[in-house]
């Protein structure tokens, strides 16, 4: 009984050392990701903009960063891409950074094209 509890409460670690999140950790990750999603949707629905607006760099960076952090949490705790994954983990993180910077750069160009519209 005690052993069974240890397996489910602590992380289930396979022989190779990659780590799949424990139930508790997975629930915490789900909670964080869900709350940030809810906040994002509430903020997006609450602006009541009739005319299209252009977000400033800070707001854009925040929105995309939250998305990338959620993706990183899924990578780490759901997919089990822990420290044992080494350079593969770094490659996935690099992928997220490229997405983040790419979207941010595009937004920067959009703001430069319509500077007075940024809010």
């Amino acid at each position: 009984m005690k052993k069974s509890l240890e397996i489910t409460d602590v992380a289930a670690i396979d022989m190779a050392g990659s780590c799949i999140a424990s139930v508790r950790t997975a629930c915490v990750v789900w909670g964080i990701a869900s709350i940030t999603t809810l906040i994002a949707v509430i903020l997006a629905l609450g602006d009541n903009a009739v005319e299209p607006i252009t977000l400033n760099m800070f707001a854009t960076g925040f929105i995309v960063a939250v998305g990338c952090i959620k993706a990183a949490l899924i990578l780490r705790y759901y997919l089990g891409l822990g420290p044992a994954a080494g350079s593969w983990r770094a490659m996935f993180i690099a992928f997220l950074i490229v997405i983040f910077l790419g979207v941010l750069a595009a937004q920067g160009v959009v703001i430069l094209m319509t500077p007075q519209a940024a809010s």
């Binding site: 397996i7 799949i20 869900s34 999603t37």
Partner: peptide
């Protein structure tokens, strides 16, 4: 429809959590 997009995000996150539970169950 941002609300539909947000609900879909929550649905997939929850579904992913269930997949983690499935791994935990098979491990035990």
């Amino acid at each position: 429809d941002r609300l539909a997009g947000g609900i879909n995000t929550l649905v997939l996150l929850t579904s992913g959590l269930f997949a983690v539970f499935a791994i935990q169950a098979v491990n035990t």
